[in-house]
């Protein structure tokens, strides 16, 4: 297992490097550059060249790439081209916001998805199944930012029970205020996520409930609830974990637009601004971080597998 994890971590580093490289060259292939964006169309050639030299953008591409890679190895993300701020500082402020939203999204999502999926599967064809199915399709077909707008309208504007703009850091404002601020954005990204995971839970559980070994359990005299939770659930969760892990990407993508709706300066906001400004180092850093999160999630999913499915044993576990 340890050997396996070490192998996977090396693999993950390679994937992250690959993403970094593609992003580096890809960004520079997009028309327009940071200098023109900053100085405007009327700037003189001379001013543009001076600024390019200042920012180090006049050097050959491979030199820029090598410098960035060396910086990355020493964990130096560099500075923003537009504000000169340290990117690590910008990230330190943005990342907790996005992760807070994503965390609430995943917790809310799983909290909705698993129970509804189970109810839907065990009452297949009954009214509660239809209600859950319709709700799931509604959740699937609405983008997160739209749900965010609806929630802000209902809870913020009509009822006035929750704030709809801004973020309150956990350390400064305490858990209650933090929670009040990220609850609505969290739910917004959580609903589409819940819909996907719920559908998967339902179909996976239905398949398992139909399996021969479930009939065996019944023939052994195992009661209904024990059959469901002891015999069916673990088998049914295997594909659910895959989907739940991969769809965290959905939560992060949703977070980008939802942050705009709720005026939260998370990495989504950071990324959108950076791309519009052709702010290369910031864009690279944010995408790198998202890639790292996804690779890490995949690894986590694979490790959870070993607990769920005894048929999966990675590599060197001699038994």
């Amino acid at each position: 297992m340890k050997k396996y994890i070490a192998k996977r971590v090396l693999n993950a580093l390679f994937v992250v490097w690959l993403v970094a490289t593609v992003v580096f060259f890809g960004l520079r292939a997009i028309p327009g550059g940071p200098v023109r964006t900053m100085l405007g169309a009327e700037a003189t050639e001379e001013a543009v060249n001076r600024m390019r030299a200042e920012l180090g953008l006049d050097q050959p591409l491979y030199v820029q790439y090598a410098e960035w890679m060396l910086d990355l190895i020493t964990l130096d993300l560099g500075q923003s081209l537009t504000s000169g701020e340290q990117i690590s500082v910008m990230m330190a402020s943005a990342v907790p916001r996005t992760l807070s939203i994503a965390l609430i999204g995943v917790v809310v999502g799983l909290g909705i998805a698993l129970p509804t999926g189970i109810i839907s599967a065990t009452r297949k064809g009954q009214r509660s199944d239809y209600v859950a199915t319709v709700a799931a399709f509604l959740g699937l077909s609405m983008p997160a930012f739209f749900i965010g707008i609806l929630l802000a309208l209902v809870f913020g504007v009509w009822w006035g029970v929750l704030p709809i703009v801004g973020y309150a850091p956990l350390q400064e404002d305490g858990i209650v205020e933090w929670f009040r601020r990220i609850l609505l954005p969290g739910i917004s990204v959580g609903v589409p996520y819940a819909a996907v995971v719920m559908r998967m839970t339902r179909s996976s559980l239905l398949e398992v409930l139909d399996a021969e070994y479930m009939k065996t359990a019944k023939a052994k005299g195992v009661g209904r609830t024990t059959r469901l939770y002891k015999h069916a659930m673990q088998n049914a969760l295997i594909p659910v974990v895959t989907v739940a892990g991969i769809q965290i990407a959905l939560v992060l993508v949703g977070s980008v637009t939802v942050e705009l709706v709720f005026g939260i300066q998370g990495i989504g906001r950071l990324l959108v601004d950076a791309i519009l400004d052709r702010n290369y180092p910031v864009t690279q850093s944010v995408i790198l971080l998202v890639a790292a999160i996804m690779v890490f999630m995949n690894l986590t999913v694979d490790i959870i597998y070993t607990f769920l499915d005894p048929r999966i044993r990675y590599g060197d576990e001699a038994s």
């Binding site: 009939k215 065996t216 359990a217 005299g221 195992v222």
Partner: peptide
């Protein structure tokens, strides 16, 4: 019936590949 199944009447199924729970 639950008390009878597996106790007084029990059953062996056709396909041993699928009739045992893979996670227990």
């Amino acid at each position: 019936m639950t008390a009878i199944r597996g106790n007084e009447i029990s059953m062996v199924f056709q396909d041993p590949m699928n009739s045992l729970n893979p996670t227990i």
